[in-house]
């Protein structure tokens, strides 16, 4: 069959809302875009374990410790689901991880910011997971079957992440003066990076058109960002927190909370590697990977030596 005809059929399937499965014909561009997007998403989950993991041993109660540990563990699990989804497109996890460790792959900018106080754990759960959920709810409708299924599972599991974050924020916001100061400071630091999580303006997003046409994404960056702001501002006000944006105002006609301009210089700088923690996060990932090499090798050697049912591959 001609590629042109195949492409038409492929796009017609997408228009009908059918899911594309791993063995189905797909344009090379679609495959490449998906590998790029899914692996970036997987890397983000894995790198995202670091800033929050930083507070597990210092959680202020045993209950908070269990919840945080379970949440960071979920992120490892979600990274795993996503790498698996990417692997259905014909890449090895090994290769994707190498791309990350060699600095060739991107991951969400947000994890290049530091967690300085316990309030950051609450605010990350509330804002960062909140933004992720807005994004992921949309991706659960993605046209690629394995990605969509991974997202449905992830959305279900992440339901508690945002709630636990907001619970910490609300508790601190009605706590002692020091706690109030801590939580407002965390909101001030995380608000703008959270808005950046949705990516550049639609007009500056080179991949957006194609991704929307192929229903890998079903909403634009700016639509999702607006939805996030509309959901979040009332939540901040409900616990007496201030959003660090002097331009923020409610538009009763559109029902939108209009907000100020994002510092796009900062956005692009951090993406290109010049954020507060880029180098540190990569160093931590590389260290874990390198120090784990002898373990992975030993297990493989043991399996080979004992002729275990692993050598089918």
């Amino acid at each position: 069959m001609e590629d042109k005809k195949r492409l038409e059929e492929f796009e017609a399937r997408i228009q009908r809302g059918e899911k594309i499965e791993p063995k189905d014909w797909m344009p090379e561009r679609y495959r490449k875009q998906l590998i790029r997007m899914i692996s970036q998403h997987a890397h983000s989950e894995v790198v995202g374990m670091l800033p929050e993991g930083n507070w597990i041993t210092r959680a202020p109660s045993l209950r908070r410790k269990l919840v945080l540990l379970a949440k960071v563990q979920d992120e490892a699990g979600h990274g795993l689901y996503l790498y698996s989804a990417a692997e259905t497109l014909g890449v090895d996890r090994q290769e994707l991880i190498e791309q990350l460790l060699e600095g060739k792959a991107k991951y969400s900018n947000i994890f290049n910011y530091p967690t300085l106080t316990w309030a950051d754990i609450g605010v990350i759960g509330w804002l960062v997971d909140g933004a992720a959920i807005v994004n992921q709810t949309m991706l659960a409708k993605s046209s690629y079957g394995p990605y969509s299924r991974a997202m449905i599972r992830i959305c279900k599991e992440e339901n508690f992440h945002k709630r636990q974050g907001y619970e910490i924020v609300a508790t601190m916001a009605k706590g002692t003066p020091e706690q109030k100061k801590m939580v407002q400071d965390a909101v001030n630091r995380w608000w703008w990076p959270s808005l950046m999580m949705f990516g550049p303006h639609d007009t500056d997003s080179p991949n957006s058109g194609e991704l929307l046409r192929w229903k890998v994404k079903t909403k634009t960056n700016d639509e999702l960002r607006q939805r996030f702001v509309n959901l979040t501002v009332p939540q901040a006000h409900a616990v007496g927190l201030t959003i660090p944006d002097p331009d923020l105002k409610y538009n009763p006609e559109t029902g939108n909370w209009e907000f100020g301009e994002i510092d796009w210089d900062e956005f692009w700088r951090v993406i290109k590697g010049d954020g507060p923690c880029n180098r540190e996060r990569m160093r931590a990932r590389r260290k874990a990977h390198e120090e784990g090499a002898w373990v992975r090798e030993a297990a493989a050697a043991y399996a080979a030596k004992h002729g275990m049912k692993s050598r089918v591959a």
């Binding site: 692997e87 090994q94 090499a293 992975r296 297990a299 493989a300 399996a303 049912k309 692993s310």
Partner: peptide, 29 residues
């Protein structure tokens, strides 16, 4: 280096229910 081979995982949630595909994992054996 190795991330170990890939395995497909099938799980049974309830007695009498079929094993259904849950996802995959990497493992040496």
């Amino acid at each position: 280096d190795t991330q170990w081979p890939l395995w497909e995982v099938f799980v049974q949630e309830k007695q009498g229910a079929p094993h259904e595909h849950a996802g995959s994992v990497h493992a040496p054996d």
